Computed example of a mutant assay.
Amino acid sequence: MGQSKNLKHLQSICKDKAKIIKAAFSITNRTTTSIQITVLRATTRSAQSPPHDHHISTLLSLSNTTRHSTSACISAIIHRLHHHHHPNVYVALKSLLTLHYMIAQGSFSLKEQPLLHPMSATGFEFLNLSRFVDNTDIQSREFGGWAQWYAGFLESNLSTSTILGCFLSSSKMDIEKKKEKLKISLYMDLFKELEALVSMIEEICKAPSSLYCQTNDIIYEVMRLVGEDYRMIQYHTKIRLTELSERLHNLTKNELTGLARCLERLEGCKGRLTELFKNRKRNDSFWNLEGEVMSKLMKLKKNAEMKSVSRKMIEYVTESTQLNSQLSATSRQLRLLPYGESNYCLTFTR
């Protein structure tokens, strides 16, 4: 068993080196070649560790030189994710990690790459790992579930960023600018953004239940980055909850109902999130705000329902009164004669 594992490890090393040599001799410009080689080195078949920091730093540096290099960087990562003869879960996870680093730390031009926005707002699965399977061994199959989920999470990240009009990891200045615009945004736009953020939180909650896998350095790094995104999701959600809280009195009954359902979905995630990030700060202020908005919302919704019932009762009583009045008036106009009396004389002849 040990010899078989060592042999597979040796084969993986040879395959990685062969790809690096092939990239080095490919007919492309120097920057593109450097990007391809760095991506290969960052996404080796080894199960031991996530991409090294210096490889990520090199990619970030290379991607910032020109628009062509920016596009080449994203293309190389996506190509590495999909184009290999036999699915390898560690290559897939490291490719997704590398892409996540680019999304979180990359320049504005890198984040605006069309490859990162391929119909993402409509839920198009451009990373396409929903059926990913690596049957090499039990651990590979187990980690394959993490690769599927992580790809779905990154797709949700990009689609949510498209709806928000900014990336989760945008600078504080960009977020503050967006915050000012929210004050004049329509309710439907705010609700759409809040719903996208809640959907992303729900995607986090779909993480595989095999939390023991987090003892692996690669999975641990995945959850660390997801945890950072979750922190930013909370920040963006709090901004929109605060703005919506100030508008609750102006919402219709249907709008209050829709918002209540959205917040109920959010509350339903709390237990799972506590389980996933139990060693992190609980962010009580976030849940306290959500609870306050929900309480205020339910009170207004109840009042709206009571007013609706009262209005219907008043309308019913008014209609009944009007009907009785009409019947009384009609009765007086008829002036019915007593039985047996008549104003006419009938003559019978034989």
Rank of each mutant, 00 (worst) to 15 (best):
L259K: 02
E243P: 09
T242I: 07
C262E: 11
R247F: 08
L248E: 04
R265L: 05
R240Q: 08
E267S: 12
L259E: 01
L244W: 15
R261C: 08
E255M: 04
R265F: 08
C269Q: 06
R265C: 11
L244M: 05
H249A: 11
T252Y: 06
G268D: 05
N254Q: 14
S245F: 12
E267K: 07
N254K: 15
T242Y: 12
R265G: 01
L241A: 02
R240E: 04
L266M: 05
R240W: 07
L241W: 08
E255P: 02
L256D: 04
H249M: 05
R247C: 03
L256C: 00
S245N: 15
K253C: 11
G268I: 04
L248T: 07
L251W: 08
R265E: 07
E246A: 05
L251N: 02
H249P: 05
N254F: 09
L263T: 01
L256M: 12
L256F: 07
R247W: 13
E264R: 10
E243C: 04
R247I: 03
C269M: 07
E246I: 07
R261D: 12
L263H: 08
S245D: 12
L259Y: 08
C262Q: 07
C262K: 03
T257E: 15
C262S: 14
R240T: 02
L248I: 14
G258W: 09
L241F: 11
E264G: 10
A260E: 15
L251E: 03
T242M: 05
I239V: 09
C262H: 11
C262Y: 10
T242K: 11
A260C: 11
K253I: 15
E267V: 05
T257D: 15
L241M: 11
N254L: 13
N250D: 13
G258V: 01
E264A: 12
G258F: 05
C262I: 06
L263A: 00
A260P: 02
N254E: 15
N254S: 14
E267R: 08
L263K: 00
C269A: 10
E255W: 07
T252G: 13
I239A: 02
N254W: 07
E267A: 06
N254M: 11
K253G: 06
L248P: 01
C262G: 04
G268N: 04
L266S: 02
T252Q: 11
T252I: 05
H249R: 06
